[in-house]
Design a protein around this nucleic acid. Structure first.
Lengths: 144, 144
DNA sequence: ATAAAATACTACTATTTCAGTAGGAATAAC
DNA sequence: GTTATTCCTACTGAAATAGTAGTATTTTAT
């Protein structure tokens, strides 16, 4: 289940933008340095975030990247979706016709539950939420 | 997030055993046929389930495979763990020393929440639970 | 204008993982 | 001892992952 570096780096990049939202555009090079990501690779990831409409770019000298929306309006499922793709554990969960067994498949039940559990978490949290929690003492985690 | 065929096929195979738990050993060939999985590939998967102690094999003619424990004693996290590996979204979630940023990393918070959500689902369900639900009308899903 | 600083775009590549396949050895039933 | 079955070792093609390389374009500052 390990997430790709694509997703992990991409989230860290957009969080970096969210944390510096009031300070004007942030250059790729700066994000890459702070997050210890190869600049050229990060460029790919940020392109994805840009085409998904989560990040806006400013070209030319003194340019860089900014969030396209305030951090409170960007939910984690949006970020996840464009980096990792949909939270689909198995085809049949979203598409009941993908397999004839689907209607009474025991496996499908658990994959559906897992998928919904993940979606629920991601949909309930925004970039702002995360930053606030991180500042408030970080990794402490309250079971829901 | 799509699960590997390894995990999806493997679960279907062990569910097949669980559904036929009282009928003596089930041959690889039969499981493969019923679940439409390549027998040779399934052999690999079932080997993994066997070395994890979830399945027992009976060699020779009239041999086959049986569950090593009753279906009510096999939790889904056990099955998942040996097929897909641990439900670890990112290194740092389980190992706080994997990254210096971990203590106040915003990203780590969400990956922890996702991981715990998945673990909670998998730990709460056994093979028997799944089979019962599937028989009771299958894919209907109640939000927890 | 021109140089410098930045993003945008296109293409390539090495490594690893995934999803199998192939063939024979060992074991047990009859 | 023949047949049915699991067990073991090894190989393989295709795709995904995680980058790298080089050039073009846009904007700012002088």
């Amino acid at each position: 289940m390990k997430l790709s570096t694509r997703t992990r780096y991409g989230l860290r990049a957009i969080l970096e933008l969210a944390e510096n939202v009031e300070k004007g555009p942030l250059q790729l090079r700066v994000i890459a340095q702070r997050q210890e990501i190869s600049p050229k690779y990060l460029e790919q990831l940020i392109t994805v975030l840009r085409s998904a409409g989560l990040v806006r770019s400013i070209r030319g000298a003194k340019g860089g990247y900014v969030l396209a929306k305030p951090p409170s309006k960007i939910r984690l499922d949006e970020v996840f979706n464009c980096l990792e793709g949909a939270v689909t554990t198995a085809e049949c969960v979203d598409d009941g016709t993908a397999c004839q067994r689907a209607p009474d498949c025991a496996a499908r039940i658990i994959w559906t539950q897992v998928q919904q559990a993940v979606e629920n978490v991601l949909k309930a949290v925004t970039l702002q939420d995360l930053i606030r929690k991180a500042k408030a003492g970080g990794s402490v985690n309250y079971q829901i």
